[in-house]
Amino acid sequence: MPAFTIRNLHLWYGAVHALKDVSLDIPEHAITACIGPSGCGKSTFLRTLDRMNDLIDGVKITGEVKFEGKDIFTEYDAMALRKEVGMVFQRPNPFPMSILDNVAYGPRLYGRLSKDQLMEIVERSLRQAALWDEVKDRLQKSALSLSGGQQQRLCIARTLAIQPRVILMDEPTSALDPIATGHIEELMTQLKERYTIVVVTHNMQQASRVSDKTCFFLIDSDRCGYLVESGDTSQIFFKPKDKRTEDYISGKFG
């Protein structure tokens, strides 16, 4: 069963139509990439999946978005949804607390845990985020003392700690240097065995390297975003069905 099924999704910011008629399936235990030029609504689309758009005033959404078969707006409570669907942001945003407290933040929300239980979760999450070896001796140090790449991995560990099923990533490496980017991409590939990953990226090479499925978005003349084509990554990049897809991809590669 796909992790997400989206049918005829429309989104308005007040009177502005920002996304129109998006329909696609997001497969589980795979990496789905959303690509397209800036401003075409990819991030808006991503934020719909964990209902982060609820935080904005005047947002109107029609259509159907189902997570594991259940409608995320009517059958899920927003907070409960966000426990299952985690998000990593473009700029790393660790809390101004210790590394340990950052990772422990999520689990602590849901109840009291013994010191041992907590340490177990923290270690597991940091290992999965490939950060454990680098920080295991300084868990009490401030998270802000880490480098950019480390901070982003910390944010991933923080998300992993709540044991979600899906991890949404909004341009996770655009603020990082190439080496750190490489680390994150490697991490994404490891994580997809356990988690479903949806990543928005403007870096097409990254999309083609890392993802299993790709969705291509464009913006129309009314500045409204829409889904042009989606399918297996290899198919999208080497035999795109839509001419617009082909133009975009070849333009970037050249």
Binding site: M52, R82, G86, P94, Y105, G106, L109, T159, I162
Partner: peptide
Amino acid sequence: SPSLKEASVALGATTWQTISR
């Protein structure tokens, strides 16, 4: 910073938890 608020909400915290923690 609003991004801290966002991070907390994205982890499923309630509004009060985000405020107090």
